[in-house]
Design a protein around this nucleic acid. Sequence first.
DNA 1: GGAACCATTTTTGGTGCCAATCAAGCGACG
DNA 2: CGTCGCTTGATTGGCACCAAAAATGGTTCC
Lengths: 233, 233
Amino acid sequence: MTADATPGLNLDRGSLPRQQDWRMVADQVASDVQAGLLPPGTWLKQIDLETRYGCSRSDVRRALDELVARRLAQHVLNRGYRVFELAPDQIAHLLEMRVILEAAVADRIYDKADEAALNRLEAMADRFEERVLNGTLLEQHAANIEFHMALLDLCPNPELAQAVRDTRSRLPTALVYQWPTRGWIDQSVRDHASMVAALRARDRDALRAVVVGHLRRAERAYGRSDARLSRRA
Amino acid sequence: MTADATPGLNLDRGSLPRQQDWRMVADQVASDVQAGLLPPGTWLKQIDLETRYGCSRSDVRRALDELVARRLAQHVLNRGYRVFELAPDQIAHLLEMRVILEAAVADRIYDKADEAALNRLEAMADRFEERVLNGTLLEQHAANIEFHMALLDLCPNPELAQAVRDTRSRLPTALVYQWPTRGWIDQSVRDHASMVAALRARDRDALRAVVVGHLRRAERAYGRSDARLSRRA
DNA sequence: GGAACCATTTTTGGTGCCAATCAAGCGACG
DNA sequence: CGTCGCTTGATTGGCACCAAAAATGGTTCC
C-alpha cells in the first residue's frame, strides 16, 4: 500500500447516496485483492484506505471487519489488518472444496438450463475463445470468470452457488496472472465447449467429469505456481 | 518494508490468548439464537445487548455486523438488526448443502479415524444413547451435537469442516426442540451406531449412505415443523 | 368512532478525540 | 562491536458525544 496515488479509479462519493458505504469499500478491497493489486500479506493501513477510497475511518474499520469475516483478511490485535496469506495446504483444501461444490452444482444445473440459457452460455464460451485468440490476458481472465459466473447462475440452489462464489473469492487469482501455459488455455477453451455440449446432451456424468477435470487442471497449475513461489522464498 | 517472519500459519479464531470482546458477544448471541432464546425475526436492540452482555456499544455494533456477515442476522438501515428469518425454500437449500458437504466429509474421514478416535466416537454415541434413555431433551441435544462435532473433527480438510459448521449454524435448531417423534430419536441412536460400525469396517459407501439417510430424515422433520408453523400462521 | 397529524421519546448511526500499543530509531552500556 | 533499553513517531482501538431517523403516544378533526 505504498505506490499508488492512482488518479483514475476513484469514484466521488459526495454525490452518491450515503447508504452502506463500508460495504462498497469492502468489495473494492476484495476486488483489488483478487486482482493481485494487494498481494497476500500486505498490511491494510486504515489511513491509506481512507484516502484511497475517500471514505471515513469508521467505514474503513467496518469494511476491514467484514473482510475478516469473509476470511479475506486477518486481524492482528494492535497491529492492524493484513491480506490473508494462505499456506499451500490451505489452498489445497480450498481447491478440494471447490471440486466438491462445483461437482454438486454440475449435478443440479439441468433444471434451469433451457434453450435460451444454453445459447447465452455458448455465446460466452465463444467470447472466451475469441479473447484467447486476440485479447489481453486481463480480458481473457474476465471472459473466463464471466462464463463460470453464468454457469453458476443456472444453479437452482442459491446457497450452494453463494458457497461456490465465497470459496472462489478466497483463492488468490494472482497466480493465474502468470498464466501457466498455452496448452492450459487451449484446454480451458475446449473444456468450456465440452460443458455446453454435455449440458445440451443432458449428460450428467459427462458434465461432472469435465468440470472436475477442469478444476483438477487448475489445481495442478496452483501447485506449479506454489513451487515457483517457494523456490524463490 | 513488510518483512515478516511468520507467513501464513494462523487461522485460529478461538485459541487467541485473549479473545476480543465483540467476538464473544457475537458468539453469545449466535448461541442464543441457536438455542431458540432469540427466535427468528427478533429485533436485536443495541441497548438490550449492551446491558445483557455487559459490554460497550461499539462492541455490540461490531458483533452485530459480524452476525450479518455470518448470515445469522440481517441489517435494516435505520431500523436495526434482526435475527435472520429463513424462508422454507432457503431451509431446503441449506439442508441440501448440508447433505452435499457432510457426504463429502464422510468420504474423506477415514485417514484420521484411528483406533483411539473410533473409541472416543463410540463413547459419544453411547453417551447419546444413555441420554436418550434418561436425560432431558436439552442433554440429548447436547450429546447429539457433541457426537457430530467429534465426527467432524476427523475430517482432514479443516476448510470443509468449517463450511459444515457454518452451514449448520445457519439452520435454526429451535424446531428440533419440539423433537418430532420417539421413533426419530431411536433411529438417530441407531444411525450413530451404524456410522461407527461403518467406520470400523472401512465401508465408505455404507457410511455415506447412513449419513445421507440421517440428514434426509432431519430434512423431513424440518418439513413437518414448517408445515406446523405455516398452518399456525 | 376512526383516521390523520403532530410532539415526544427511543433508538440508531456517525464523527471526532484521546488513550493504549507497537515498531523503528537512537544512544548508552557491557 | 553487539546488545539492551529508552524515546519517539505513527497507528490502532475504544469511548463519549451528537445528529438523524423511526416508533410511540396523544390530540384533533372529520
